[in-house]
Design a protein around this nucleic acid. Sequence first.
DNA 1: CGTGTACTTGATTTAAATCAAGTTTGGTGG
DNA 2: CCACCAAACTTGATTTAAATCAAGTACACG
Lengths: 246, 246
Amino acid sequence: MRRNMLSRKLSGFARLDDEDEALLNTISVRPRLYLKGEDVIGDGDVPDDVHLVLSGLACRYKLMADGERQITAYLIPGDFCDLHVAILDRMDHAIGALTETAVLDVPRQTIAALLARPNISRAMRLATLVDEATLRQWIVNLGRRSAVQSLAHLFCELRTRMESVGLVENNEFSLPISQKVLADTTGLSVVHVNRSLAELRKARLLAFSDGRMHILDAEGLDRLAGFEDDYLHLAGKSANSPADHV
Amino acid sequence: MRRNMLSRKLSGFARLDDEDEALLNTISVRPRLYLKGEDVIGDGDVPDDVHLVLSGLACRYKLMADGERQITAYLIPGDFCDLHVAILDRMDHAIGALTETAVLDVPRQTIAALLARPNISRAMRLATLVDEATLRQWIVNLGRRSAVQSLAHLFCELRTRMESVGLVENNEFSLPISQKVLADTTGLSVVHVNRSLAELRKARLLAFSDGRMHILDAEGLDRLAGFEDDYLHLAGKSANSPADHV
DNA sequence: CGTGTACTTGATTTAAATCAAGTTTGGTGG
DNA sequence: CCACCAAACTTGATTTAAATCAAGTACACG
């Protein structure tokens, strides 16, 4: 059986046994397609199912009173949109498709079954904490990094996350998003994003065209961005044993 | 028995019965004091116990390579520092005391006992989600709001959170932090924080001196900041019943 | 009393926004 | 097949919000 995206992602956080894997692979049914620009979940919605991104790219975002948009997270294959909402009253932000995106509706009882397996439960909790750590990194990005560094850091993050679910080949991955989207992510203007990208290209750190991101100098990009991948807590580097969890 | 801060906070998220309350109130032993500027937990630490803020004010922060600091969250009485770390390998940021702060070391097994009670468990998960929503708001703050709006939003947030644990009287609460701390929070320079504060004072929205914050015009401040308190998910406004949780 | 820390205020510089034209690309229909 | 159009991307000129530089003052504390 081909491993699905969720299984790929979670196995990066905890050792999963065959039974875990089998269970994870049973949930691959009935994906729903969203076109670029469509909302997967709207701000204020009270979704019934939990949503899992299978392919494509989505984002969390908030719309401001003046119509400006601020993106707060990218969702790549293997990410849950709203594990949260099972316990929250309603969404306090929206989820939008940045590209054509396949999303799986996972019934709550399936989630409950998954969480009943200790390894999977542990991996999912870890995934939630990584989401939180990523938000903190974004705050640092917006608060203390220059435009170029901020963009560089975003690309470092995406490269690493994409890699962890096997979507990077030859330091290259699909990223069919407009400069406006990057502006909404970094809090910059489109014009300035354009100039900053030009700078990154001129420095031969990356190539970005036709919806593909090619990292030419990963180390140089990391250095420029001050990127440290430890906050993503990848691979089995954990100091705690699986039995350790509260 | 006097209710402790944790009990006060959690009862805002879920209905707690007498037994829940009793259990929560048993953990009030042996608080540890930290002086202003001391680290409660350092970046990279692997803490054994979970830490609970009882009084004072602490913050999460990251130190940059150039020595700059970015604060990513404020921790007020009733907040946990590192419920996370029980499952994570090590801290990917530090916790520092912004004022003299009393912190309780809660052994993991006590946490486990608390989580075994459904209402408390639900309230704690909700608290975690609120932390995440707050991080998203900060991203919006840094990305899309002006200096004055950003500061205003921070004060709105603090007022609301302080209120929820009973630390606000007459729209006034203790906030003995320097303008440098506000600068490290908002990603601004100290000078600009100073001028922006002056603006907020001149607009008669607040008074801030001698370590006390007095909100003079709560509604005006909310309007300026674009503050909506729904992301804090306070009071029993939940659409889900306690039995609903996954 | 000095001395350091926090706060203020003014002058200057700078990073990024805004304004204003472009070009390039991809799609659509005649 | 080509004319037309709308996005997305570029590039240049100007403005602006905030940073930096530079001096102050007001205290608290030893």
